[in-house]
Design a protein around this nucleic acid. Structure first.
Lengths: 112, 112
DNA sequence: CCATTGTGCAACCATTGGTTGCACAAAAGC
DNA sequence: GCTTTTGTGCAACCAATGGTTGCACAATGG
């Protein structure tokens, strides 16, 4: 069942730009809208919007520091998201395997 | 690195309605826009659009059967998508663990 | 042959990921 | 201290997309 999935968390992580942002933040530890947009193919304003989304679902946390706002990954929340990814993945995987087994059994029946 | 991810595949699977559709198709083996929309909180037309998206990225395959069009999951392609999910998941997981280890080492240093 | 049912297509609406432009506060240079 | 950078936030705007309703039409069933 996919119904156990938090859709907000998932769709936050579903956007490719946001995924890259999380990658960068994880690699560097911390970043601002400007530093992130330097390494991304979108404008600073777009990055700022994404940071807003990620902040709202709790995947990152931003703190004002002087004139800039620093963001870092909330590790616990990202761990939760990862858990959901792998949960859905293995649910589908399980179904696929079951289908494969059934297909093989039918092959067997035919040969008899 | 998330750069190895096929964004089309991922964002196809990123939509919650499409995820539920895949669940239903996997459970039932086959379905049409109408039968799926019976069990989903959206209209038949919305489901038809989603089926179009899923078909375009190859996650499902639709074949005309009389007056209706039957869709089923392309298992190989879904397996690919699952592989990418778990790949990104474990990449992040790895980074999180590394961060955790470093944090623990710093704790150690302090105690000395 | 007529009524039903499943589809596909078009128009329309709200949200969202993106842009540009601007105003303003904090740092840095002189 | 005053001026120039530099980082932010906000607003307007645009295109794509997930959703809706409405309609026309082909296939099935009585």
């Amino acid at each position: 069942m996919t119904s156990t999935v938090d859709d907000d968390l998932w769709s936050a992580v579903g956007d490719p730009t946001r995924r890259r942002m999380l990658d960068l933040l994880l690699a560097d530890g911390v970043g601002t809208a400007t530093t992130l947009s330097d390494r991304l193919p979108v404008t600073r304003q777009a990055v700022a919007k994404h940071l807003g989304v990620l902040d709202r679902v709790g995947l990152v946390h931003g703190t004002p520091a002087g004139r800039e706002r620093r963001y870092e990954v909330d590790e616990a929340q990202l761990a939760r998201a990862v858990a959901q990814l792998t949960a859905v993945g293995s649910a589908w995987d399980g179904r696929l395997q079951r289908i494969k087994r059934i297909a093989e059994r039918i092959e067997q029946e035919k040969k008899r």
